[in-house]
Design a protein around this nucleic acid. Structure first.
Lengths: 147, 147
DNA sequence: CGAATATCAGTGACACTGAAATTA
DNA sequence: CTAATTTCAGTGGCACTGATATTC
């Protein structure tokens, strides 16, 4: 055990990393269960949300947003398209690109899932007060503000 | 879109969930790269750390700690054992159980990796001050206390 | 016998790399 | 021709469920 002379135990980067991993793991597990009845996975739901929010996205931009390689984004879109939740369309400005757009069913599903997602997240964050949640968001968001 | 036009965007459970996922993702990706040269994966390193820290653990307890099912923990230990980082031993008190213990190589590797891990975490948490880190740890830890 | 522990076998989800096709 | 975008093919990590042997 590394004995920090500071009195706030657990402030070390390693402890922070473990706490972050644990919390994220819990969230993912909860959401996976909630999503299963709808035939969506955690990663799939995240991608669909992004597409619905954007209205229309290139595959490459989706990959960047999700922090995965473009090839992985292709497979992801394949699944969503197969499920009838998004469609591929040619980009009129650049024919190398493919625009991904949500179908009405895709939009509806995101709407439906919002409640479930809210419940999952609410469950995890229930120990925190409103102020604490705002503070946690601020801290987390600052970690990934464009490296 | 649901009619919640709080555009300081951040307090909602959904936003919190996304921020948490994103930060954790980033950490995992960085660490994976750092771990690759040592032949260890993110999950493998996490399990090894737990075993080294405990000195000796039953498979079931390891599974509980990592929040995975016992069968998955078996496979995890298989990999570590194959790499010569842990050994299995009979539990003298309960012959149904298997005790997992680190080998000297396992202990050494955890030691070696501590610096790498610290660097990975440090990189992610660098935007935060010391006080902010302590606060973030407190908030995250409270999310996974019990249950 | 019923409960707990670990293992064996098979499956699904998901990100990665390398190679190829299309177009700017 | 070079660079960018996307797709195709194959691989590795990892967690899950179901079934089985052993032991309490």
């Amino acid at each position: 055990m590394t004995e920090d002379h500071e009195h706030h135990g657990g402030g070390s980067p390693a402890d922070l990393a473990e706490a972050l991993t644990r919390a994220s793991w819990r969230l993912r597990k909860n959401e996976r269960k909630a999503l299963a009845p709808y035939g969506l996975t955690f990663a799939g739901a995240r991608a669909l949300r992004a597409v619905v929010k954007a209205g229309s996205m290139r595959i490459g931009d989706l990959a960047t947003l999700l922090e995965i390689v473009p090839r992985s984004a292709t497979t992801r879109v394949d699944s969503l398209e197969e499920a009838g939740l998004v469609t591929r369309a040619a980009d009129p400005n650049d024919r190398r690109s493919v625009l991904v757009e949500p179908t009405p069913q895709g939009r509806d599903l995101v709407e439906t899932l919002a409640a479930e997602r809210r419940a999952s997240a609410e469950k995890l964050f229930s120990p925190l007060s409103s102020d604490e949640r705002a503070e946690l968001f601020r801290l987390l968001a600052s970690l990934t503000k464009e490296a």
